[in-house]
Design a binder for these strands. Structure first.
Lengths: 178, 178
DNA sequence: ACACGATGTGGATGCTTCATCCGTTTCAAG
DNA sequence: CTTGAAACGGATGAAGCATCCACATCGTGT
């Protein structure tokens, strides 16, 4: 990746800045350009697709999530490690609406893909350990757990977000063995 | 509601027929008109908004769901009644992608609203009974349960749909008290 | 049977949004 | 300072959406 020219870096920052100021669902690139004080073409040059822009907005959160996953994986108690990881994932996904897209989409940059792969590796280990320890239902794959977390995210978003912990708790206890 | 003229009825049927042939997410009304062999205006006259069309497509499923809810509510075992209702709701929602929209949207016809209200009444009763019987967590509202079901639906859709029962079971056991 | 008002039809049309192209400007290396 | 490469911006065309209105069809009353 070649170093960015100074004006290009300035434009990029302005675009990301403006993008952060509006809900991710109504990202109209044309308006975004006006908002950021740059031309439309500039937006499209920096971010060829909407997904690319979303990825740039959420890569930081993804890094943070990977960090938290590492910490969770280091927890000696497999059950605790699992619930911590699930909670972290849900929390980050709720804070950054684009994260789910990046985690599921195929058209992400190699940087995001790298982080995602690392996250999945960690999560797979944590899940396997939790199952081995008898703390979590053994009939679920990582993919299924991940999708359930996305489902909870969806459920929380349908409300005002205040019952995040409660809904998450329902699913976590559903995943756990008594 | 005045009786439909014969040609109007024919057009309406054609439109609904064509609409059923494509995924609800990509309902482009213009193409739909061509597909159905009618003019664009005809589509818009019969169904002023996309939601109106979706509602027409799913009202039958909604009626069926209300029926199932009545049956479930009649079950003498409160716990069984609850899980049956949850399963019915999830199943119907998965079969008819538009159902969730109709259940949550504000801009539905009075017919749909009536059915929906009846469904919610039944569901509220079933939930209250299940809680009273000690079968279900007492700290959840009907709205929260409904949203969780929508969440499961979302999770199933993210996959190929084959693990519907499994994912649903996770949430149901999360809702249940041991 | 038929005439006529009411109801329904179809596609041309204008409007909004999206994304690309290309002439002009800005940067920074030599 | 010169120069070529990189970036900029807005005009532009393509695409979807929903409306409008001139014409066709229905079915009722005579």
């Amino acid at each position: 990746m070649p170093t960015l020219r100074s004006d290009a870096a300035r434009s990029r920052a302005r675009i990301l800045d403006a993008a952060r100021r509006q809900p991710i669902t109504e990202l109209r690139l044309n308006d975004l350009a006006r908002e950021a004080g740059v031309g439309v073409a500039t937006v499209y040059r920096h971010f060829p697709t909407v997904t690319a822009l979303v990825e740039a907005l959420t890569i930081e959160a993804l890094e943070q999530l990977v960090d938290e996953a590492r910490t969770a994986a280091a927890d000696p108690d497999p059950a605790l490690a699992f619930t911590r990881l699930v909670r972290s994932t849900a929390t980050r996904q709720l804070e950054h609406q684009g994260l789910q897209t990046v985690l599921l989409s195929d058209e992400v940059s190699s940087a995001a893909r790298g982080l995602r792969d690392e996250l999945f590796d960690l999560a797979q280990t944590v899940l396997t350990n939790a199952i081995t320890a008898g703390a979590v239902r053994p009939d679920l794959s990582l993919d299924q757990v991940q999708r359930l977390v996305c489902g909870v995210e969806h459920a929380v978003r349908l409300g005002d977000g205040s019952d995040r912990d409660l809904l998450l708790d329902v699913v976590v206890s559903g995943l756990s063995l008594p």
